[in-house]
Measured scan of single mutants.
Amino acid sequence: DRHTIHIGDITIHLEGFSEEELKLAEELIKRGIHLEEVKRILEELYR
């Protein structure tokens, strides 16, 4: 499954994450956390 996060003019595609995980990812990215770090956090929390 493919999910999309929109932040301003930026569109990020993250596959294989639930709606809850994507909301967390979006919040972290909006707070300035680097995408690679966001992915690592999600994997630690949900895998």
Score class of each variant (00 low, 15 high):
residue 1 D to T: 09
residue 1 D to E: 08
residue 2 R to M: 15
residue 2 R to C: 14
residue 2 R to V: 14
residue 2 R to A: 14
residue 2 R to I: 14
residue 2 R to W: 14
residue 2 R to Q: 12
residue 2 R to F: 14
residue 2 R to L: 11
residue 3 H to I: 13
residue 3 H to K: 09
residue 4 T to P: 10
residue 4 T to R: 04
residue 4 T to A: 09
residue 4 T to M: 02
residue 5 I to P: 06
residue 5 I to K: 04
residue 5 I to Q: 05
residue 6 H to Y: 00
residue 6 H to C: 04
residue 6 H to K: 13
residue 6 H to I: 13
residue 6 H to R: 12
residue 7 I to F: 11
residue 7 I to G: 08
residue 7 I to S: 09
residue 8 G to P: 05
residue 8 G to I: 06
residue 9 D to T: 13
residue 10 I to M: 11
residue 10 I to E: 07
residue 10 I to T: 12
residue 10 I to R: 06
residue 10 I to W: 08
residue 10 I to F: 13
residue 11 T to D: 09
residue 11 T to W: 03
residue 12 I to Q: 06
residue 12 I to L: 08
residue 12 I to T: 05
residue 13 H to E: 07
residue 13 H to M: 10
residue 13 H to R: 12
residue 14 L to T: 04
residue 14 L to Q: 02
residue 14 L to S: 05
residue 14 L to H: 04
residue 15 E to L: 13
residue 15 E to C: 12
residue 15 E to P: 14
residue 16 G to I: 13
residue 17 F to H: 05
residue 17 F to V: 12
residue 17 F to Q: 02
residue 17 F to G: 08
residue 17 F to D: 04
residue 17 F to C: 06
residue 17 F to M: 07
residue 18 S to G: 14
residue 18 S to E: 08
residue 20 E to N: 09
residue 20 E to C: 12
residue 20 E to H: 09
residue 21 E to F: 15
residue 21 E to H: 15
residue 21 E to I: 15
residue 22 L to Q: 09
residue 22 L to P: 01
residue 22 L to T: 10
residue 22 L to I: 13
residue 23 K to D: 04
residue 24 L to Q: 05
residue 24 L to Y: 13
residue 24 L to N: 03
residue 25 A to E: 02
residue 25 A to L: 09
residue 25 A to N: 00
residue 25 A to R: 02
residue 25 A to Y: 04
residue 26 E to T: 13
residue 26 E to G: 05
residue 26 E to L: 12
residue 27 E to P: 01
residue 27 E to F: 02
residue 28 L to N: 00
residue 28 L to G: 01
residue 29 I to W: 02
residue 29 I to C: 03
residue 30 K to G: 08
residue 30 K to T: 13
residue 30 K to Q: 09
residue 30 K to Y: 08
residue 31 R to V: 11
residue 31 R to C: 13
residue 31 R to F: 07
residue 31 R to Q: 14
residue 31 R to D: 05
residue 31 R to G: 09
residue 32 G to F: 13
residue 32 G to N: 07
residue 32 G to P: 03
residue 32 G to K: 03
residue 33 I to D: 04
residue 33 I to T: 08
residue 34 H to G: 14
residue 34 H to Y: 03
residue 35 L to C: 02
residue 35 L to T: 06
residue 35 L to Y: 08
residue 36 E to V: 06
residue 36 E to S: 07
residue 36 E to G: 07
residue 37 E to M: 06
residue 37 E to I: 12
residue 37 E to V: 10
residue 38 V to K: 00
residue 38 V to A: 03
residue 38 V to S: 00
residue 39 K to P: 00
residue 39 K to V: 13
residue 39 K to Q: 08
residue 40 R to L: 08
residue 40 R to N: 03
residue 40 R to D: 01
residue 40 R to G: 01
residue 40 R to W: 02
residue 41 I to M: 10
residue 41 I to H: 01
residue 41 I to G: 00
residue 41 I to Q: 03
residue 42 L to A: 00
residue 42 L to I: 13
residue 42 L to R: 00
residue 43 E to K: 03
residue 44 E to V: 01
residue 44 E to R: 00
residue 45 L to E: 12
residue 45 L to M: 12
residue 45 L to F: 12
residue 46 Y to T: 15
residue 46 Y to L: 15
residue 46 Y to I: 15
residue 46 Y to K: 15
residue 47 R to Y: 03
residue 47 R to F: 09
residue 47 R to M: 14
residue 47 R to A: 15
